[in-house]
Design a protein around this nucleic acid. Structure first.
Lengths: 359, 359
DNA sequence: CAGGCCGTTGAATCAGACA
DNA sequence: GTGTCTGATTCAACGGCCT
């Protein structure tokens, strides 16, 4: 039996390389396969600059069928090297994640969770034709329905202010100092994943000293975080330029020796923004309801889309409040009130009610 | 051709009922199909044979296979009744949503967004062996890649405090007064969806008066909200007890009669088109007038036929604007300005004046 | 040095009417 | 169906530069 090559980047096609590794030898697999984006033409921002899209050859497939075959092949190779107690993570978007999920289920993998990475700072939708695509999805699976797997429940709970860690993870995309640049100052890899994401993945589903395999290593976030967190790792990557980037990055990574240092505390969240429209959606105010200003000088009607309309103006609660008064600005939350029998309730009371629910 | 039955609950198997409806007749479909594979898989076996408790590989696959067949069948029937400009929403969890997504893509539906409903108050994970499953996923698809579909961008933006609506929607699950109870005080339907969810779905992707179909009506949230928001609706449900619940609920729902309250603001795209030449014809700009770009970098002269001419280019306001900047495109209305004594007025002001006259 | 302004950028399936 | 032309459209974070 071949020995498992540890803490190395193996160059080559991940399917072939995985086939050459001993079976049932790794504890966890994190995979960020090509998403098969199927982009056509180029996209310009409102300021006429061009969006730097992922148009690399490695993301091009002839058809869904070709993509499905590719998916089944690499998943089969991954399944072979995974220990019976191991788990696999796969990240993707709506372009590919359903294909991946179906393949995983068909092969006998057991979905433990689908985790949603909610991006705090996604790219907006420039043409206004869809909802802003603001998340990606990760599937976390054990090898079989009855497999014993690792889940560090307490560590996750501690990471989340002593509440159970949920299936939605809110994190920024990778940019700023963390984003690796090449000599020209351009991004070294088009889809570098944030370290915080891998930190949580590794901490949740592996023990220190276990072996983590990333078959699509790319810029090496998985390996770097595995090294930092005291896990052994194996990376597979086909392209020399990415291997160089990852090698340098991993070499610069300093392992954490202090166990306690691993526990981050989550930063205090800001008070969540409550759009006025939420009150309408939740039925606290029905469309057509009439709001009044202090002393009932002005009235405005609530519309289904969360705008309000007065005799002469329409727009947000703030805009209309300012307009009727002829003021430069207005806090609509405290200005507009819902008339009741005797008195009137500022609409801010409803906002406070929603905020209270969130805690 | 059969007439479309409107604002009714049709009793029966949704596949058969949809096959009996006229083709290309509904504007939007919202579907909440059953998704407990292990328990319901047997229900959809073609030969009606009962399956014993399933835990071996073969049965698991058989169950997925049966579910896939069921999914393809009802989606095919749904596709038939959907107008070419229509869209379909399907909600599910990781148990079934990958099967549904794959089927949708294979049938030619084009995924516009996957929307994540992030629950503020999910059921906790009691055993502490996984992350708290705190979300569900909705797929929103047009009928084809090139289909023209309805998306009320401005309404969604207004609902979200003038920021683009994102693909993650944070809302509580349906409980409290909204949750319908039966005579015993038990919940009348196991998976009643919150009204806020359907409010946003309907407002985003339908116009008032359009027809919405829900093939798995259940407790009737879709129909009730469609009625409230001035949309026509068709519900299909197999079980008498749910039909009773839904009927009572829908009857009690009071439509918003105020048209203004459910009408979203007209997007600029739909405003009447004003040719630039009209400004010249009306004498708002005389031939020979010189227009300037921002910061007066470029100038162009207005000609009698509504074209303009710069030092090196001639053509429409948009073409010349793009050409002088070397940009792929340009909105000439906001780019070109008429110089006045101290400042300059964008020519769009003249267009707005003409549009105002039209009202 | 703090703070404001401006330019840049991120896995993107990103227009629609009319001839 | 295809080609042509109008003209609508962005959020958060970071870094550099200026006051």
């Amino acid at each position: 039996m071949k020995k498992l090559p540890e803490n190395q980047i193996l160059k080559g096609d991940c399917i072939e390389v995985m086939r050459s590794l001993p079976e049932e030898s790794v504890d966890m697999i994190f995979a960020d396969p090509p998403y098969n984006l199927q982009l056509s033409g180029s996209l310009y921002r409102p300021n006429n600059s061009k969006v730097d899209a992922v148009d690399d050859e490695w993301d091009k497939f002839d058809s869904f069928d070709a993509y499905d075959r590719f998916t089944r092949d690499w998943l089969a190779a991954a399944r072979r090297v995974l220990k019976p107690s191991g788990t696999i993570w796969v990240i993707g978007s709506y372009h590919n994640i359903f294909r991946v999920g179906t393949a995983l289920q068909n092969m006998g993998f057991w979905v433990l969770n689908d985790i949603v990475w909610v991006k705090t700072n996604p790219m907006p939708n420039f043409k206004g034709r869809r909802f802003t695509n603001a998340h990606e999805t990760m599937l976390w699976c054990s090898k079989d329905q009855d497999a014993r797997y690792t889940f560090n429940y307490e560590a996750m709970k501690a990471l989340n202010d002593d509440l159970q860690m949920r299936s939605d993870w809110t994190m920024p995309i990778c940019n700023g100092g963390e984003r690796i640049k090449d000599d020209n100052g351009d991004k070294a890899h088009p889809t570098q994943k944030p370290e915080a994401l891998l930190h949580r993945v590794l901490l949740s589903s592996t023990e220190p000293g276990q072996v983590v395999l990333d078959p699509f290593l790319g810029s090496g976030t998985t390996a770097a975080m595995a090294k930092r967190l005291g896990r052994r790792w194996i990376g597979i990557e086909r392209e020399d330029k990415y291997i160089e980037v990852a090698k340098r990055r991993i070499a610069a990574e300093v392992p954490v020796t202090d166990r306690e240092a691993i526990q981050h505390t989550t930063p205090k969240r800001k008070e969540p923004r409550i759009p006025f429209g939420l009150l309408v959606e939740r039925g606290m105010l029905t469309p057509g309801t009439v709001l009044v200003s202090p002393c009932k000088r002005f009235t405005a009607k609530v519309r289904a889309d969360g705008t309000i309309i007065s005799a002469e103006h329409r727009g947000s609660i703030h805009q209309v409040g300012a307009a009727v008064q002829g003021a430069p600005s207005c806090n609509g939350w405290t200005y507009w009130q819902l008339p009741t029998d005797r008195t009137a309730v500022p609409i801010d009371a409803f906002r406070q009610k929603i905020r209270a629910e969130l805690h």
